[in-house]
Design a protein around this nucleic acid. Structure first.
Lengths: 197, 197
DNA sequence: ACCTGAACACCGTTCAAGT
DNA sequence: ACCTGAACACCGTTCAAGT
């Protein structure tokens, strides 16, 4: 019974049975221990889920050092989305509380470096970073909820006149995510050029 | 006991005592009725919260018809954020499930029209719309969580080298939200010009 | 001192029993 | 047929009692 074994069991349970299965009682049952035994390694459920989230973020690929800054940001953020969706149980948690453990900080560091390379002023690096993380979290949430929300979203889109109902991009899809990410990166590129020139 | 009176009581309870106070039992106590009485007007708690969310979105200001498309988008989305933050109990729900009731559809319609005016192709209107809504939802969530997360976010920002710790924008602030929104709008403007020219 | 599990204070929702 | 509230199947966390 270590913090790592609890984290691992929680992740496995979430992968298998979803978000709601990761309750203190169910996790304890999975480990064959008393629910209270978990509190010896984590102060509360939130802290445990943070640890699980960070363990998932560890899988996010590191972009090669050489490429252009915008491509590196795309690799990191689409990687984060893909990795989170491979673990459906914890994906919702990652989407609502961007993980800030050691692995989360590594990813954050990569984004900071790339944004500085884009030519942004230090304060704007932080602002753009937060905007990117916010967008990534929201894109992930849309993907997580897609099963539930798709029909509702399609309703809204279809209700708008003059739009071909059949050509609509799927809500929460990788393509949709990438489109918005490219919009943000265009805005950042422009801002960096403005600051530099 | 109408759907409207239940919605109103739920909103008042949430404003007063926060998200967790809006339980079926607490709402029933507020109304002086049996918890099950609510189920005659709403199939479940989710549907009730959707109705509350939509009633809040009714307060979102309509932009004047005349202004430029990007300014109108800013008015609508910053208005949505401000309105939601005036109702802290339901703000979290609005952030995670963009409201798609009648009032939500009115707001969506305004965004669609503005994006078409920007010169985007129909399919890209939908894509950009989803990106904007995702960003708005995420910005709202950051504002809602600011009390909880601020210190954690500041940690990450402060951990990055070469950044002046004192000049950091406040996480979830209106200023931070506006910065990211302007990045997206820059990207959209560029895309519209590219499609037109 | 450490650990356990019973108990507390809740949930959303079902459903049988009453009118 | 309509309505009520007891009951079901859960929660996260506290804390007293045991070792």
């Amino acid at each position: 019974m270590t913090a790592a074994s609890i984290t691992q069991a929680t992740l496995a349970l979430g992968d298998r049975e979803g978000e709601k299965a990761m309750s203190m009682r169910r996790i304890a049952a999975e480990l064959g221990c008393d629910p209270m035994a978990i509190y010896r390694h984590f102060p509360n459920r939130e802290a445990l889920l943070d640890a699980v989230a960070d363990s998932v973020v560890a899988e996010v690929p590191a972009p090669g050092g050489g490429g252009p800054w915008d491509e590196r940001i795309r690799v990191v953020l689409t990687g984060m989305r893909a990795v989170a969706l491979r673990h459906p149980g914890i994906a919702g948690h990652i989407a609502s509380r961007p993980p800030l453990g050691p692995c989360g900080r590594r990813v954050a560091g990569e984004l900071f470096v790339a944004l500085a390379e884009a030519g942004l002023a230090p304060g704007d690096v932080v602002r753009a970073f937060q905007a990117l993380i916010a967008y990534a979290a929201a894109g992930l949430r849309m993907a997580v909820d897609a099963g539930v929300q798709d029909r509702r979203w399609q309703q809204v889109s279809a209700a708008m006149e003059g739009l071909p109902g059949e050509a609509l991009p799927v809500v929460g899809s990788a393509e949709q995510f990438d489109y918005g990410l490219r919009l943000l990166l265009s805005g950042i590129r422009l801002e960096g050029e403005r600051a530099a020139g």
